[in-house]
Amino acid sequence: MTLWKRFFTNGSAPQARERLQILLSHERQVLGGDDLLSSLREDILAAVAKRVPCERDSVKVRLERGAPMSILEIEVEIRGNVELGLTRAA
């Protein structure tokens, strides 16, 4: 393959990469470490719901695997404006 050809042919690999990145970031969230993420989600839900009302769907746990470090992203949506200083038991 000459340099010229390499320059002027744009292959399909970039499409493959992009589709995979989107798909896998979704699948890792849903299937992820299978048990790990769903149990984490349950634990977090239980901990948060003890203090503020919160539904199962509003807890999002995402794991971005990587080396040398992975990132665990936790997002909890809570309806309305949360009053600080006031803790209430569910």
Binding site: R6, T9, G11, A13, G66
Partner: peptide
């Protein structure tokens, strides 16, 4: 290697980046 040069095969760096495995 032929398909890689043509750009029709996922690049090694891309696969490594996506799977992040040694």
């Amino acid at each position: 290697a032929v398909r890689a040069a043509r750009g029709d095969m996922l690049k090694i760096e891309d696969v490594l980046d996506i799977l992040s495995l040694p």
